[in-house]
Each structure stands twice: as structure tokens, then as C-alpha cells.
């Protein structure tokens, strides 16, 4: 089978990843507010843009249509919220559980596998990101910024963003040696947040727009923006494909790293 050649064996042995969700739900049950910590940042951005900046900037053209600036930015912030949630959970929290709490060592002594841990933890990070995104939709709804019932599709788009960032984030975390290495995380996510056609359209970047297209978040922003406007085009499949591809690579790397580092 071709998948067996592309995917490492660690990712094929997955049976009960949902146990990690169960475990993390047990932990957050007591401190569920913490899980929303990363939601407020994009929310404050949205409010500040709506209150002041939007009037100064005026309308923006998207696909031949003019929309107010705050409605242009909102989907970008929503995509960023999904990224933030996924990255927070898959980097710092995973590192703590892996290196300090030795949680994965004890789980690997049970019938659970390296693949179960990789998929379970990534899945939980996605859920955390989705909680931010969903809260964001309700905020947009309350502010009258939702343009189309297709906004529900943005949840799917945010799930793809979450998977891509959680997978890459956790894979990256397996290479981190100390807390100092986490200085690099915002050094990556902040430029992604600012330069993924979040605050201005791709055309503003002129001949540099190809750089923007290297950002995984850009592909997510395009998907969320399309959902909010309810405007679909075949090119969206490519954007979704990029996120799916990154997810698969990240999950595969994570699963095999757990296997080589903890099952030695």
C-alpha cells in the first residue's frame, strides 16, 4: 500500500487517541477559564480596529466587492485565534508534559502507542483553537459582522488551520531542549499573524506577495474570509490542501519522534 511507504509506521498504529482528550478534559475541568487565555488577544484587536481604525481606513475591495475594513480583518483575526490556540497547546503544554511531567513515558507503558499520543495531543490542540474560533464567531455575530450563513464553514477552515499549526507545533516541540527555545515560537507566530493578508489584502504586498503565500496562516485566512463572505472558488481546494499537507507531515514527524525518543 502506498500509504505505508509515505507514512511512518508510528502513525499507522493509532487506536485510542481520544484518551488524551479525555485526560486533558479532566485537567481543564477544574480550570476551564485558562483555556480561553489566548482568545482575548485577537478579540481586543478586533474591538480596537472596529472602534477606531476602521473609519480611518475605509472600505476594502475583496473579489470585486467593497467591504468595511473591520469586516475584512475579522476573518483574519479568527484564523489567527485558531492558530494561537493550537500553538499554545502543542508547544508549551506539550513540552511540559513530555519533559517535566514525563506523562508520555507513563502512557507508553499502557496499551497506548506513540501514534495515539501524537494524534490525541494534536487533536486536543485543534479543539482548543476551535473553541477560540467559535467564541470569535459569536462575537462577530453580536457585532453584526457576519455576512453569510456560510460562516459555519469557517469552523471547518479553522479546524484545518488548527491541525496544521498543532501538528507542526508539536513536531517542532519534540526538537526543543529547554524553555529558552520557546523564545522562537512568538518570533514565528507574530510575523505570521501580521503578514498573512490578515490586515490588508494580498495585492498590497505587490511583487512580494509570493512570500505571503508561504505562510500557512495565509491559506487559512483565505478560507475563513471566503466562508464569511460565502464566496466559493475552486482555488480554495489548493489552500485547504496546503493545510492538510502540513498536518500530515507534522503528525508523521511527531509520531516518529515520540517513538525514537521515548521508546529507545
Amino acid at each position: 500500500m502506498i500509504t505505508t511507504r509515505i507514512l511512518p509506521s508510528a502513525l499507522l498504529d493509532v487506536r485510542s487517541p481520544q484518551r488524551l482528550l479525555e485526560r486533558n478534559a479532566m485537567v481543564y475541568r477544574r480550570s476551564w477559564m485558562v483555556i480561553f487565555s489566548g482568545f482575548f488577544e485577537p478579540l481586543f484587536y478586533l474591538l480596537s480596529i472596529r472602534i477606531g481604525l476602521s473609519a480611518l481606513v475605509g472600505d476594502i475591495e475583496v473579489g470585486g466587492k467593497l467591504i468595511p475594513y473591520d469586516e475584512f480583518v475579522a476573518p483574519g483575526l479568527m484564523a489567527a485565534a485558531a492558530m494561537n490556540g493550537a500553538v499554545l497547546e502543542s508547544t508549551m503544554n506539550v513540552f511540559h508534559k513530555w519533559r517535566q511531567a514525563k506523562l508520555y513515558d507513563s502512557i507508553l507503558a499502557t496499551p497506548m502507542s506513540a501514534g495515539d499520543i501524537a494524534i490525541g495531543e494534536i487533536g486536543f490542540a485543534v479543539i482548543r483553537g476551535l473553541m477560540y474560533s467559535t467564541a470569535f464567531i459569536f462575537t462577530m455575530l453580536a457585532l453584526g459582522m457576519v455576512k453569510s450563513a456560510w460562516i459555519v464553514m469557517s469552523v471547518v477552515a479553522c479546524a484545518l488551520i488548527g491541525f496544521a499549526f498543532a501538528s507542526i507545533g508539536m513536531a517542532w516541540t519534540t526538537y526543543m531542549r529547554s524553555w529558552a527555545d520557546f523564545e522562537y515560537v512568538p518570533a514565528v507566530t507574530l510575523p505570521l499573524f501580521l503578514f498573512s493578508a490578515t490586515f490588508y489584502p494580498l495585492s498590497s504586498y505587490g511583487s512580494w506577495s509570493w512570500v505571503v503565500q508561504l505562510s500557512p496562516l495565509y491559506h487559512g485566512v483565505v478560507l475563513v474570509r471566503a466562508s464569511n463572505l460565502g464566496e466559493w472558488s475552486p482555488s480554495l481546494v489548493v489552500h485547504a490542501g496546503v493545510l492538510v499537507g502540513l498536518s500530515v507531515v507534522g503528525m508523521a514527524v511527531t509520531a516518529s519522534r515520540i517513538k525514537t525518543l521515548l521508546l529507545k
Binding site: 485510542s16 484518551r19 479532566m26 514525563k102 506523562l103 507513563s106 507503558a109 499502557t110 496499551p111 497506548m112
Partner: peptide
């Protein structure tokens, strides 16, 4: 592994959970 019980050299208990929850979630892994 599903038929083995392991007591590791350093207690690898789940610090974020209570004693009871530690036992319950461990059972869930099985």
C-alpha cells in the same frame, strides 16, 4: 502491554490530576 502493570523507578504520576483521577484515567488508557 495490555496485560502488564508497570511501577516505574521514578513515580510518573499525572501531577495535574488527583489521586483518584490518576487511577481512573490510567484505566481508560487500557
Amino acid at each position: 502491554r495490555s496485560r502488564i502493570g508497570v511501577v516505574p523507578q521514578l513515580d510518573q504520576l499525572d501531577q495535574e490530576l488527583t489521586v483518584m483521577e490518576n487511577l481512573v484515567i490510567y484505566a481508560r488508557y487500557f
